[in-house]
């Protein structure tokens, strides 16, 4: 069986890639995708802990389902707002969205 450490390392790598993407990407859609990576890292953590350490209860798995569901709602809203900005300004680059000082 694969040891739990592998999953935790995978999740921390995913989480770091997500943070890097959030800081380095300038396109709002790509930033949202990076946030999704961070959330998937969280889900992997929850599922790994639940399966390896606490196999007798479902709490961790349920938490992962909640994370996935609510992340979907958030992305839907984010795309809506990005569309609105695109119609106003013709760009989804966060550097060019600068009416307020960033």
């Amino acid at each position: 069986m694969i040891p739990i450490e592998n999953f935790l390392v995978l999740s921390s790598i995913l989480f770091s890639i997500g943070i890097y993407g959030v800081l380095a990407r300038r396109n709002a859609v790509l930033i949202i995708m990076s946030v999704e990576l961070m959330l998937q890292a969280v889900s992997i953590n929850f599922i790994a802990f639940a399966v390896y350490l606490y196999p007798e209860q479902f709490t961790g798995l349920i938490f992962a389902i909640f994370v996935i569901t609510i992340a979907a709602a958030e992305v839907g809203l984010a795309l809506g707002i990005i569309l609105r900005i695109f119609r106003n300004k013709g760009t989804s680059n966060v550097d060019e969205v600068d009416m307020l000082k960033w």
Binding site: V22, L39, L77, A78, I85, V94, W102
Partner: peptide, 21 residues
């Protein structure tokens, strides 16, 4: 207003991902 909304949403989503971790 949309710009403020986008900034709030992006940083809000990142912060909840961090808290979740």
């Amino acid at each position: 207003s949309s710009e403020a909304g986008l900034k709030y949403l992006l940083l809000g989503a990142i912060s909840s991902a961090v808290a979740l971790y």
